[in-house]
Amino acid sequence: MKKGKAFEIIVKRIFIRIGFSEVYSDGLYVYNGTAGQMIQGLGNSHNADVLLEPLVQTPFYSQTRLLIECKDYKDKVGLNIVRGILGLREDINHFEIVDNNILQERRKQNRKVINNCPHARYTYQVAIASTSGFSTYAQEFAATHRISLIEFNKMPFWNKLMNLIGEKGDADIEEEELKKNVDKISSHMAVAITNMGQLLFLYCQSGMVDFPADEYDILWRNKNEPWTLRCGDKEYSFQLPEYIIESWINYSENEIEMKKKVIENKSTFFSNMIVYYCCDQKPVIKMISIDFEKLKEAKKKLNEIANGNDK
């Protein structure tokens, strides 16, 4: 098993253990090809490294799916890769099964329904998971187009997992054994979606996943460690690319400032995000919030570390 394939398994198993569902090939719209699972696009079909459906669908909208491209590169993922992912998203979201017969029949006022290839309409969101991080240009482009960037290299479990896989081109571990190890890790994980649409993986080192409070705050110590999200008596490690987390904090601050201007009272205003996790093997969804003062503290620490003034 190649290391790239092992990385795909890691990403996929984490999502599934949190509660996402695997999308199985239907043989037409999504099918199995020589490169793996393929999905039809307007211009061409595309390889889908990891294809999933979320725990719940948003009412009044097309059903949503998530396609994750997994990159096991020596160097950081660059701008060209993220541009390509944006093109992929556009191509698969504009796909429709139409042939000449259907187009000709549409011209008739008394036509019958002749589309023999009905399929559910999906809106596809895309994300990129990388073992080596992302360039600044790639991060800026991804943030603008709401493409989630996923990395784990600072997370507490990552080095142990990489040691199991090995440093060579081929992973030193069997697929089933790898899945078992990932399942143990992901049983302590949740995934959040920020107000910017960024996926945020949360890892709890002690105890089971739970969010006992409705509010949270975030802490950071230095560039070599992940951030900490604290909710009640629970602490979670999380990691985001530097530009992405800076953009998220700034966006959340601006969001609260706008609320203050629109609603002129002394209420405490919050920025929210949705957390998905499993409890007793059942999917759970919860909204947690952070207030303006805690965001200011996080931004201050971010600036101190960026300027080399952290102590």
Rank of each mutant, 00 (worst) to 15 (best):
Ser135Thr: 15
Thr144Gly: 07
Pro226Asp: 06
Glu8Met: 04
Gly207Arg: 02
Gly43Ser: 09
Glu242Asp: 13
Met1Leu: 11
Glu174Ala: 07
Asp280Ala: 07
Asn250Glu: 14
Val30Ala: 06
Phe60Gln: 06
Asp91Met: 03
Asn116Cys: 15
Tyr216Pro: 05
Asn163Ile: 03
Glu105Val: 10
Lys180Trp: 02
Arg121Lys: 15
Ala190Gln: 00
Phe95Asp: 02
Lys286His: 03
Leu202Asp: 00
Arg106Thr: 11
Val126Leu: 03
Phe7Thr: 06
Leu161Asn: 09
Lys223Asp: 13
Ile285Gln: 07
Glu176Asn: 12
Phe20Cys: 02
Ala120Thr: 15
Val126Glu: 03
Ile305Lys: 03
Asn80His: 08
Gln198Cys: 05
Lys299Tyr: 04
Ile68Phe: 04
Glu174His: 06
Ile147Val: 14
Val98Tyr: 01
His46Asn: 07
Asn80Thr: 09
Asn153Gln: 11
Lys74Leu: 12
Arg106Asn: 13
Phe269Gly: 00
Gly19Arg: 03
Val191Ile: 09
Gln37Glu: 08
Ile218Asp: 06
Gln125Tyr: 15
Tyr203Ala: 05
Arg111Tyr: 02
Lys74Val: 13
Gln63Phe: 08
Val11Cys: 06
Cys204Asn: 14
Lys300Gln: 10
Phe152Trp: 11
Lys3Thr: 13
Glu242Ile: 10
Lys180Cys: 05
Gly41Val: 06
Ser62Asn: 12
Gly308Val: 02
Ser130Ile: 01
Lys160Asp: 15
Leu199Trp: 06
Pro212Met: 00
Asn195His: 14
Leu86Asn: 09
Leu67Cys: 10
Ile114Val: 13
Asp75Gly: 05
Asp291Leu: 02
Lys296Tyr: 00
Val23Lys: 02
Gly27Ser: 00
Gly133Glu: 03
Asp233Thr: 12
Met196Gln: 12
Tyr251Gln: 10
Ile288Gln: 07
Asn224Phe: 07
Asn100Ser: 13
Asp183Leu: 05
Gly207Lys: 00
Lys223Tyr: 11
Lys234Ser: 03
Phe7Trp: 12
Trp248Tyr: 14
Thr58Lys: 11
Met208Gly: 14
Val56Phe: 12
Trp220Ser: 05
Asn181Phe: 00
Gly308Leu: 02
Asn100Tyr: 09
Tyr124Asp: 07
Glu246Arg: 14
Ile147Leu: 11
Asn265Lys: 04
Met196Cys: 10
Val82Trp: 11
Lys160Arg: 14
Leu164Asp: 11
Glu304Lys: 12
Asn116Ser: 15
Asn222Gln: 02
Glu242Gly: 07
Ala306Met: 10
Gln57Ser: 02
Asp170Arg: 13
Val50Ser: 01
